[in-house]
Structure formats: structure tokens, C-alpha cells
Computed example of a mutant assay.
Amino acid sequence: MAGVGLGTVQERAPGLVSLYKSAGVSLRKHGLAGQRAAVYLVVDYSGSMRDYYRDGSVQALADRVLGLSANLDDDGVVPVVFFSTDVDAVEDIALDNHRGRIDEIVSRLGRMGRTSYHLAMDEVLDHYLDSGADAPALVVFQTDGGPISRHAAERYLCKAARLPLFWQFVGFGDKRSNQFDFLRRLDGLAVPRHRVVDNAGFFHAGPDPRRVPDAELYDRLLGEFPQWLAAARARGIVRG
């Protein structure tokens, strides 16, 4: 078994049991039962995100990602990168401390800034490489808008395509907004012209992400991951 096991979740985080089970159903549906993967969460801390922290949307996403991670990794911990103009914090959320954890971290952070994707991406790359992990990584990257440097974000994504990390971007906000046109473009960058494999996906969770059903959220988070795994294994990026 790749994850921590249902018994451990029941003991350490009973509030996540339903999320853990729902994530497991989605993993099996996508042919990922028994798959090992490190899971990261990147969350936007720019000024326009204020209401999503206040209404619990970011905490809800963190809990759902932790429920998914508990199926894929056996440490019960998700590294969380908070970013705005710079990287604001790198913290862990774990089965033992998930309740109210986002609010607790944010209470120690400073002013909310702008949106620099590439700095958060660089932080994830460093963390993954420094960890010495041999499993692939699924990076859930949440934002409510486009980056201040599109060129830098695209360059980092294309460079990262040679590493065993898949970037699943999640948009919070109005589905009619053009703020997410760049992420749709990233999702469709040509292979192999721009990157060696398709290492990113994007889906829009809407203006109230908490209303997206758990099963749908997990299906969207995992929708492109199996295809990336197959392509990355074929290129020798992911081993095993």
C-alpha cells in the first residue's frame, strides 16, 4: 500500500476519513491504485485571495489535498508553499495538525502581495530535489489569477518537464474572467516543441470552490496525471 492506511487516518485525522475514501475511489477509477507520489500544495497569497482565506476555501482545499496525499504517500504530511510577490512561507500540513492550520500559518504572514508563479515553482523544485525523493510528485497549484511574469512561469514549467513533477493548476474565481487564459495556454503548450512531456493540467473550481463535490475535485486533480506518468516513464523521467 502506498499511503498511510485507513486505520491511521481514522486515528490521527477522523475528520478526513470521508475525503481519504473519496480520493481512493478516484485513484482506482484512474488506474492509480497503489501508486506512490509525493504531494505538494501551492497556494496563492496575493491580495485578491483575501476572501478565500476568510471563508475557508483555502483550508478546505488543503484538507482535500491532504486526504489525497494520505493515499499516495506514507508520511501523512503535505508541504505547502504560500506565494505572492515572493515566497511568503513554506510550511507543512499534516494529519495530526490539519484543523485550522491554514489560518494559523496566515496569522504569522505579512502583507499580501502580487502573483509570482515562478518563485513558488522554484521553491517546489528545490524542496523536491533536496528531499531525495524517488517517487514522482503531484503539485496542486492554486491561484485566482495570472502571474506578473508570464515568460518566467512558462520557462519554469518547460524546464521542470524534465523532472518527475506534474503541475495541476486550480483556478479560484469567475469562470468568465480572462485571468485564466494564461493557465489554459500553459496547459496546451506543444510537446516536444516547448517541453519534453505534457507536465501540467488546469481546471477551474469557480467562485466558490467549496461547492465542488469531493468526487469531482479528485477526478479533476487526477484527470491528466496517469497520461503524464505514462509519458514520463516512456522518456525515463519517472522510473518504476
Rank of each mutant, 00 (worst) to 15 (best):
D92K: 14
L119V: 11
A137M: 09
R185Q: 15
C158N: 15
D86C: 07
R101L: 08
V87W: 07
Y128F: 09
A160E: 02
V170R: 05
E104Q: 11
F141L: 09
V87T: 03
S116I: 02
L119H: 10
A120P: 02
G76P: 01
S149M: 06
P136N: 08
D181C: 01
D96H: 14
S84N: 15
P164R: 02
D126N: 13
H98I: 07
S149Y: 03
G100A: 03
R162Q: 15
G110A: 07
V140F: 09
D130K: 10
L138F: 06
A94D: 12
M112K: 14
F182E: 08
I148A: 13
Y117D: 00
A152V: 01
L183V: 01
R150M: 12
G171P: 09
L95E: 04
A160M: 07
I148D: 15
A160T: 00
G188L: 05
H127A: 11
L109K: 08
V124E: 09
S177T: 10
R101D: 04
L129W: 11
P136W: 10
A153H: 03
D130C: 01
R101M: 07
Y156K: 15
Y128M: 03
D126Q: 15
D73C: 02
L129K: 13
P147W: 03
A133M: 07
F141G: 08
E123R: 13
F83V: 07
F141V: 11
D75K: 08
F83S: 09
D75T: 09
E104H: 06
N97K: 12
D73Y: 12
A135K: 15
A152N: 12
D130Y: 10
R150A: 12
Q168Y: 05
F172R: 00
R155A: 15
D86F: 13
E91D: 14
L109R: 07
F169Q: 02
D75N: 13
V139E: 03
L163N: 13
L109Y: 08
D187T: 04
S177I: 06
I102M: 09
E123K: 13
M112Y: 05
G145I: 09
D73W: 12
D73K: 08
D187N: 10
G113T: 11
S116H: 11
A160D: 06
G132K: 08
F166V: 04
A160F: 06
